[in-house]
């Protein structure tokens, strides 16, 4: 294994850049870049959680945005009911996403391949419709979160810089966790299942149980991203769970490089910056973005990480 590779250098650059960003924002007085990157980091966290099941577990979930919504709604609904403490809101958000992932996973994992893609998609749409039907919590129009989660003195979410670092800390902590999971015995079994499920079953591994645990871990992580996202936008709405959002997350993972540790982060940064850039260029940015995705799928195998790896080999 080489000590220096292009992809490692890019990853290191990205990490340093993300850590130092608030300093740049303060020095240049550019507040917008800080809010933009807070959103990017939160969605990168969601993409990283999707990558855990997609890249390492081989489970193509097309309904990952549901957890964003569930985590977000947990914060929004508790805030609406007057429970503002983050020590209650965040655990509830995580528990709710984990429970949802457990139920959906247990049902969806009975299927495989393209059935799995469609099932997860359909369940996420169900969550979307349920949220649209919550008349008490704004229904279709969504719910404004008037007060951000209160972590009584520990960290102030209304302070832009503190919130940014909280999100970044969550992202790095979760990537560390994914790294530990992937390289544990559990993670190796999971990757074995991705390569050849039948053979793993023949050796005697209860394949569904391993996959379900991974599915729940991933859903819980994404629920955390949802709780952060609700605090970031001060607003939750069913649109958080709409299936195009699940598609966005998938695109970030593929774009960055599926099955790599930092690929989803790079994918999220590139995708959201591209979206921002194109939407400043023209109102009809999706007209360029759509065909671009098609080209990435057709010609860019392995995403950006794959590209960097090829650069290295020369």
């Amino acid at each position: 294994m080489k000590a220096f590779t292009v992809s490692k250098a890019v990853t290191a650059l990205l990490v340093v850049g993300l850590v130092l960003l608030p300093l740049y924002s303060q020095a240049s007085g550019n507040i917008f870049i800080l809010t933009l990157f807070t959103r990017i980091i939160i969605l990168a966290l969601a993409a990283a959680s999707l990558n855990l099941i997609m890249g390492f577990g081989g489970m193509m979930s097309f309904g990952h945005a549901a957890y964003l919504g569930i985590g977000g709604y947990a914060v929004g609904m508790l805030a609406q009911e007057g429970i503002g403490s983050g020590f209650i809101q965040f655990p509830v958000a995580l528990a709710a996403s984990a429970t949802y992932a457990l139920v959906i996973g247990a049902l969806s994992l009975r299927t495989r391949g393209v059935y799995f893609i469609m099932i997860t998609l359909a369940f996420a749409q169900m969550a979307y419709y349920v949220a649209s039907g919550l008349a008490r919590y704004g229904g279709d129009d969504g719910l404004t979160v008037y007060k951000r989660s209160d972590f009584s003195g520990l960290v102030n979410l209304s302070n832009r810089t503190q919130f940014y670092y909280l999100c970044l800390a969550c992202l790095f902590a979760m990537i560390f966790l994914i790294w530990r999971v992937v390289n544990s015995r559990f993670g190796l079994v999971l990757q074995g299942l991705r390569s050849n499920e039948q053979r793993m079953q023949a050796i005697g591994f209860p394949s569904k149980r391993y996959q379900l645990v991974c599915f729940v871990i991933s859903g819980t992580m994404c629920g955390l991203a949802g709780a952060l996202l609700a605090n970031n936008t001060d607003f939750v709405s069913p649109a958080m769970m709409y299936w195009t959002r699940s598609g966005d997350l998938m695109v970030m993972v593929i774009l960055g490089g599926m099955g790599t540790l930092f690929g989803p982060v790079i994918g999220a940064v590139v995708y959201l910056l591209l979206e921002e850039f194109l939407s400043q260029l023209t109102e009809y940015w999706a007209l360029i973005m759509g065909p671009l995705l098609l080209l990435i799928v057709l010609f860019g195998r392995g995403g950006i990480m794959g590209l960097l790896g090829r650069l290295n080999r020369g």
Binding site: M60, G290, L293, L294, V297
Partner: peptide, 10 residues
Amino acid sequence: VLATFGLILF
């Protein structure tokens, strides 16, 4: 899924 998702956007 990805390629046709791009087509929907388009």
